[in-house]
C-alpha cells in the first residue's frame, strides 16, 4: 500500500465509511508516515469546520405560506385532472384499484346480462312455441265462426289436411266434427265438399278416430252421408 491509498482512507476516516481492518491499517501507517499524518491533521481541521457548518440550518421563511401554496396546488391539480389528464395520471387512474373493481363489475355485469338474454330468448321461444301450438288449436276452433266458414277456406283447410300441413289430433278432430254438425243446415255445399274429401280424410284416421267420429254422426243427412262412406 502506498500513500495514495491512505490518502483516500484519511478522507473517509469514519467508522461507517471505513472497516475496522482498514482503520487499523491506516493507524499503523499514520504512526510511521509524517506526510500522511500531516494530511490527517489537515483533514481533521477541515472536518471541524464542516461539523460547524452542519449545525447551521437554512431558515424556512413563511412556512404557512408554503404549506398553503402546496395545498392549493394539489387542489388545483385535482380539479384540472378531472378534465385533462397527463398520460401518467391517466394510467394511474386506469390501473387504480377503484377502476379495477369497476372493471370487474362491468365484466361480471356483461356476463350476467348475456346469460339473462340467452335465458330470455330460450324462454321467449318456448312461449312462442306454446302460443303457436295454441294458435293451431285456435285456427281449428275458429272454423266455428261464420266469417271463416266459406268454401274457399274450407277447401284450403281440407287441402292442408290432405297435404299433411295440418295434423289433426284427437281434440281437433272432435272440434272439426262438431263444427260440421253445427254448419250442416246452413251450408249444404260445404258439407258436400267435405263429403267429397272424406275418403282422403278417413285414410289418415285410425280405428279409434273412426269410432270417435261415429259418435258424432247422428241421424241426419250428413250423418247418413258420412256413415255410408265410412
Amino acid at each position: 500500500m502506498n500513500c495514495d491509498n491512505f490518502k483516500k482512507w484519511i478522507h473517509l476516516n469514519n467508522p461507517k465509511e471505513l472497516s475496522n481492518a482498514e482503520k487499523r491499517k491506516l493507524n499503523d501507517h499514520l504512526s510511521s508516515c509524517t506526510a500522511c499524518r500531516k494530511l490527517f491533521e489537515d483533514v481533521e481541521s477541515s472536518n471541524k469546520i464542516i461539523q460547524k457548518l452542519k449545525t447551521i440550518e437554512p431558515e424556512l421563511t413563511y412556512p404557512q405560506v408554503l404549506t398553503s401554496n402546496i395545498m392549493q396546488s394539489i387542489k388545483v391539480n385535482k380539479k384540472s385532472s378531472r378534465f385533462s389528464f397527463t398520460s401518467i395520471e391517466f394510467f394511474e387512474i386506469l390501473f387504480s384499484n377503484k377502476v379495477k373493481i369497476l372493471a370487474y363489475f362491468i365484466v361480471i355485469g356483461l356476463i350476467g346480462l348475456f346469460a339473462y338474454q340467452q335465458l330470455f330468448i330460450i324462454n321467449k321461444l318456448n312461449q312462442m312455441e306454446r302460443q303457436i301450438a295454441i294458435k293451431s288449436d285456435e285456427s281449428i276452433v275458429q272454423i266455428k265462426t261464420p266469417v271463416i266458414v266459406n268454401n274457399k277456406l274450407l277447401m284450403q283447410f281440407v287441402s292442408e289436411l290432405e297435404n299433411e300441413q295440418i295434423v289433426l289430433d284427437r281434440k281437433s278432430l272432435e272440434q272439426l266434427l262438431e263444427t260440421f254438425q253445427d254448419l250442416k243446415t246452413d251450408h249444404d255445399d260445404l258439407l258436400e265438399l267435405l263429403n267429397n274429401n272424406i275418403k282422403d280424410l278417413e285414410k289418415r284416421l285410425s280405428s279409434k278416430d273412426i269410432i270417435l267420429l261415429k259418435k258424432f254422426l247422428k241421424e241426419d243427412d250428413l250423418v247418413k252421408n258420412l256413415s255410408t262412406n265410412l
Partner: peptide
Amino acid sequence: LYYARLNIREKLE
C-alpha cells in the same frame, strides 16, 4: 464523497 472532501479541504486551505 472522497473527491468532494478532497476538493473542499483544498478549497478551505
